[in-house]
Design a binder for these strands. Structure first.
Lengths: 217, 217
DNA sequence: TAGATTGTTAATCGATTAACAATC
DNA sequence: TAGATTGTTAATCGATTAACAATC
């Protein structure tokens, strides 16, 4: 699932296992929302209810890194947020380039989640001239022709593809040529890329399919 | 991740493990695309390249259910598609209700993936009166007021939430009252639901965050 | 035949869970 | 104190991988 990639892990160098990291980022999202709802502290059981991860597993995930909770009380939400962000190193600012300002692109760019987690959409690129100049979030849509130069100049290494399947391979090629090494592919297309480029393919519709399997007979 | 839920599994009753099923649906997506690209057969190594799943794991996943390949040759794409669809029981038609016709809702509804996998969007519901009546895909947007009656009448048990976080809990309550038991939550909100209702929360932006962790230092 | 790729074994590793003492 | 919840142990289970004989 999500899925779940299998990258080489460097333990003992400050990096954590893939499974642990995936769960930690889910906890992060729950904690962020719980804080918005005005909560100050939370128990492992409450996190379990929202994430479908076993409560013991959650406590174990935290205790790998220290004793963050208080017995009989639970975890301080602010404290946990800070600890998890340190572990995941999501404190810094990351620049990404988004290609495609259709419905999916606008949904992604409009989400408040990026800003909340220190990810900055440095540019949105689109071939449809009638969309160029429009604002999504606080970024103006740029012409696709600018993509290569701007990505290169800003040394952006993460590209997000929210374009139709037919266009995906060409856009990927352009991004890679400009220096991108991590591509997040929201199209259905299968991308052929050099070995030093990582592709993560996902799609709301595909995910929904996965989830349905577990619940429909 | 996808993430990965942990439902009770009934093996020996024709159901497969959560991990296996998640991988099978990823293979399904790759095979569908490979077929579109004009390929007739595919090797476990090729599937591995596109999914980041180990090739041995892929062969093992298939061999749980039979001998689908030919040594020295690979797998027939049509044959594999048919076998996987049988295993996942995605042959039948499933009706779902989609709430929210904003960017994300339109991106979901407009995806060709659903039709390709036998999932039918039976209704799209929206509170913004100016959008009611518009077509997305081949479905006309209905007023939100119709939601409860139509979901009940059509005995829809799957609801998809593509609404702002502030509205999510109310919509969830309405869906559940109308008989929905599986909610796919694309908002950031944490939903409180009765024990017999399953919530799967996901979000393109959250997914992107997960993926970034594995590649940024 | 020669090369390629499956199907399967065996060994390892990490995830998961129940249970419970520690302690707030 | 009494109740709640953490942190941790121990035991189990499934996932992952390398390796290779079988065979197309």
């Amino acid at each position: 699932m999500l899925q779940s990639a299998n990258e080489p892990i460097r333990l003992g160098e400050g990096r954590v296992g893939v499974g642990v990291a995936a769960r930690l980022s889910r906890y992060l999202q729950v904690l962020t929302q719980a804080k918005k709802m005005g909560k100050d502290r939370i128990s492992s059981q409450e996190i379990a209810d929202y994430t479908n991860v076993n409560a013991t597993q959650i406590r174990r995930d935290f205790s790998n890194f220290g004793k963050f909770g208080k017995r009989g009380v639970g975890y301080s939400i602010d404290g946990l947020l800070s600890e998890i962000r340190t572990i995941l190193r999501t404190q810094g600012q990351h620049n990404i380039a988004l290609v495609g300002a259709g419905h999916l692109g606008q949904a992604i760019a409009g989400s408040p989640i990026f800003a909340e987690h220190g990810i900055h959409i440095a540019g949105v690129y689109e071939t449809d001239a009638s969309k160029v100049g429009q604002l999504i979030g606080d970024v103006a849509i740029s012409p696709y022709a600018n993509l290569t130069d701007e990505v290169r100049d800003r040394q952006i290494v993460v590209g997000v593809l929210a374009v139709p399947a037919e266009a995906a391979q060409k856009v990927a090629n352009d991004l890679i040529e400009a220096g991108v090494r991590i591509i997040f592919n929201y199209s259905e297309a299968l991308l052929d890329v050099p070995p030093d480029v990582t592709v993560h393919t996902s799609n709301p519709a595909v995910e929904l399919l996965h989830a349905l399997y577990f619940h429909l007979g």
